Amino acid sequence: MEEKKDYLVSVKAPFTEDEFEALDIAADDVKHEYSIMDMYLISLNENQVAELESHENVKYVEEDKEVSTPEEGGEEE
C-alpha cells in the first residue's frame, strides 16, 4: 500500500460523493471539509495527488505542513 500524506485541496465547487469515488478517495480519507472556503483536508497517495492536480474542478493541491512565524523582535531591520 502506498504511503499517504495529508493535503489541502482547494476546489472551485464542493465535490460530490460520486466525484470522490471516481477519484478513488474513500470517505475516511477526507479528514475535514472547510465551511468558509471550498477546501478539504484529505489523506492522499502520490497517484491521487497527480490526478487531483489535473482535475478541472481543483484550484490547487498543497501538502499540509506546520508553519510558523518569526517571534516578535526576531529580525533586525
Rank of each mutant, 00 (worst) to 15 (best):
K31L: 09
G73P: 10
L23G: 01
K5R: 15
E17V: 06
D64R: 01
H32M: 06
L41Y: 00
H32Y: 10
E46R: 14
Y60D: 05
D18N: 12
A13P: 01
E76T: 07
L41N: 01
E3Q: 15
D24M: 04
S54T: 15
V11S: 01
I42T: 03
V58E: 09
H55V: 07
S43R: 04
E77P: 09
Q48C: 12
E2C: 10
I36F: 08
V61E: 12
A27L: 07
S68C: 05
P14F: 09
G74Y: 12
A50Q: 15
K12L: 11
E3S: 14
D28P: 10
V67Y: 08
S54P: 03
A50E: 15
V11P: 00
Q48W: 10
M39I: 11
F15N: 00
D6L: 09
V9P: 04
M37R: 11
E76K: 15
D6R: 01
E71S: 14
I25A: 01
S35F: 03
I25W: 00
D28I: 12
E17A: 06
K65D: 08
I36A: 15
E76P: 02
D29Y: 02
S43H: 06
A27E: 05
Y7Q: 00
G74P: 04
S68K: 07
E17D: 09
K59L: 11
E46Y: 12
E53D: 14
V61F: 10
A27K: 06
